[in-house]
């Protein structure tokens, strides 16, 4: 039973983006369109699941004084694998995400979960945590991207959703729009929490 609760907690209660505020850089940078967000989410989820599994497997043989460098090596290896695989099979997406794929290495979500969860729990729960956190991050990315893409290009996943007379609000897909969207979303989350309390 705990397996499922470890998955679901990442979606809302401990959403890595909105609640833990980890990994803001890629969220803001690649959320210009929903397709980019989904691609980034998938890459992060994959790396998170793999690194969580490996780290929970090796947690007992790694001396604690050099655990961080070793975790980084594990994470960097998976990131490079994702990077190369994407370049070979999804070249367009690879181009759109650009430098943010190698930068998954320093995405605080991954190292954060390795340190806070995988190094203390068994493989099964670590796997669940990886899935949950990965999906949570993807969800957050997709929400931000949905707002930005609809406002900024009038489309969703490339399909036109706004009437043709709608003049896209360019600022939404430019850098400032990213900050505004995330800022207001977080305020909204706080507000909802306040009401419930």
């Amino acid at each position: 039973m705990r397996f499922f609760s470890e998955i679901t907690k990442g979606l809302i209660k401990e959403n890595p983006m909105f609640v833990l505020v980890l990994g803001t850089c890629p969220t803001l940078a690649v959320s210009t369109s929903v397709i980019n967000a989904l691609g980034m989410g998938a890459a992060v989820t994959f790396v998170l699941i793999c690194s969580n599994i490996i780290i929970s497997l090796i947690k007992n043989i790694v001396p604690s004084s050099i655990r961080i460098p070793i975790y980084i090596v594990v994470i960097a290896a998976f990131v490079s694998v994702v990077d190369m695989t994407m370049a070979a099979f999804l070249p367009d997406l690879h181009k759109a995400l650009g430098i943010f794929i190698p930068l998954i290495v320093v995405n605080c979500i991954i190292l954060g979960r390795a340190e806070a969860f995988a190094s203390k729990n068994n493989v099964l729960y670590s796997l669940a945590d990886g899935i949950g956190m990965g999906l949570g991050a993807t969800l957050a990315l997709t929400i931000v991207a949905t707002i930005r893409e609809i406002l900024g290009s009038g489309t969703w996943l490339g399909i036109r959703v706004m009437p043709n007379s709608y003049e896209p609000m360019l600022v939404a897909i430019l850098a400032p729009g990213a900050f505004f969207t995330l800022g207001f979303l977080m305020a909204l989350m706080n507000r909802l929490k306040e009401k419930r309390a």
């Binding site: 050099i66 290896a77 370049a87």
Partner: peptide, 30 residues
Amino acid sequence: LGVILMVFCVIATGILAYVNSVTEPKIETL
């Protein structure tokens, strides 16, 4: 400590070299 870190690096490099040997020709032809 150094040896342990080294072992991890070597394993990681090996995996990457393998993946690269698979994906590189594919990227080139693409």
